[in-house]
Amino acid sequence: LTVRNMVKNRPLARAISDAGWRQFRTMLEYKADWHGRDLVVVDRWYPSSKLCSTCGASAQRMPLDVRTWTCRCGTIHDRDVNAARNILAEGLSVTACGAGVRPQRADTRTRQSASKQENPRATKGVAAL
């Protein structure tokens, strides 16, 4: 979340400022480490609200007052539920593949696609065929 931009919304500025966003993330990291889990942080520019969780099509513009929208494939989305589904899918892909679902840039270190790089923890305990 871009807190700096959210604070510009005058009616919500105080409530947003009072929330301890950095402390919240620190606690999430601490709890995940404590329980042996991985905390996956999704890219802040990932278009979770505008991306159709059914077909993957992306909406061009979506102002904040649009709470429900219909995709070209005919699926009707609640903005927040759709964003949650997309963030879950992105997090699972990062856990399984070790990188985001977006194509990697040509100047990457390994020059391999994300699907060819497996996270060792994802296959730990799985017998090799």
Score class of each variant (00 low, 15 high):
1 L>W: 09
1 L>N: 08
2 T>N: 14
3 V>D: 05
5 N>H: 15
5 N>T: 08
5 N>A: 08
6 M>A: 12
6 M>Y: 07
6 M>P: 01
8 K>W: 04
8 K>M: 03
8 K>N: 11
11 P>I: 02
12 L>G: 04
13 A>E: 11
14 R>Q: 11
15 A>C: 02
16 I>V: 14
16 I>R: 00
19 A>C: 15
19 A>H: 08
20 G>F: 06
20 G>I: 06
21 W>M: 11
22 R>V: 08
22 R>G: 10
22 R>P: 02
23 Q>A: 14
27 M>S: 10
28 L>A: 04
28 L>G: 01
28 L>C: 07
28 L>P: 00
28 L>W: 00
30 Y>L: 09
30 Y>W: 12
30 Y>C: 12
30 Y>G: 05
30 Y>N: 08
30 Y>R: 13
32 A>V: 05
34 W>I: 08
34 W>C: 04
34 W>M: 11
35 H>E: 11
36 G>F: 14
36 G>K: 07
38 D>Q: 13
40 V>K: 03
41 V>E: 15
42 V>T: 03
44 R>D: 11
45 W>M: 07
46 Y>I: 01
47 P>A: 09
48 S>F: 02
48 S>G: 03
51 L>A: 10
54 T>E: 12
55 C>Q: 07
55 C>T: 06
56 G>W: 06
57 A>P: 02
59 A>D: 02
59 A>P: 00
59 A>S: 04
59 A>C: 04
60 Q>K: 08
61 R>P: 00
62 M>Q: 09
63 P>C: 00
63 P>Y: 01
64 L>D: 01
66 V>C: 03
67 R>W: 06
68 T>I: 04
68 T>Q: 15
68 T>G: 08
69 W>A: 05
70 T>E: 15
71 C>I: 12
72 R>Q: 10
73 C>H: 12
75 T>L: 07
76 I>A: 15
77 H>E: 13
78 D>E: 01
79 R>L: 04
80 D>W: 06
80 D>P: 07
82 N>Q: 09
84 A>M: 06
85 R>N: 11
86 N>S: 08
87 I>P: 09
87 I>A: 01
91 G>K: 13
91 G>Y: 13
91 G>T: 14
94 V>E: 09
95 T>S: 14
96 A>H: 13
97 C>Q: 12
97 C>H: 04
98 G>R: 03
98 G>S: 00
100 G>Y: 07
100 G>C: 09
101 V>T: 14
102 R>M: 15
103 P>E: 13
104 Q>E: 10
104 Q>Y: 02
104 Q>I: 01
106 A>L: 15
106 A>W: 13
107 D>I: 05
107 D>Y: 09
107 D>H: 03
109 R>W: 09
109 R>K: 07
110 T>S: 10
112 Q>W: 04
113 S>H: 02
113 S>L: 00
114 A>Y: 05
114 A>K: 05
115 S>K: 08
116 K>N: 12
116 K>I: 01
119 N>V: 06
119 N>M: 03
120 P>K: 00
120 P>L: 02
120 P>A: 00
121 R>L: 13
122 A>T: 13
122 A>N: 11
123 T>Q: 07
124 K>P: 03
124 K>F: 14
127 A>G: 03
127 A>Y: 02
128 A>K: 10
129 L>M: 04
129 L>W: 11
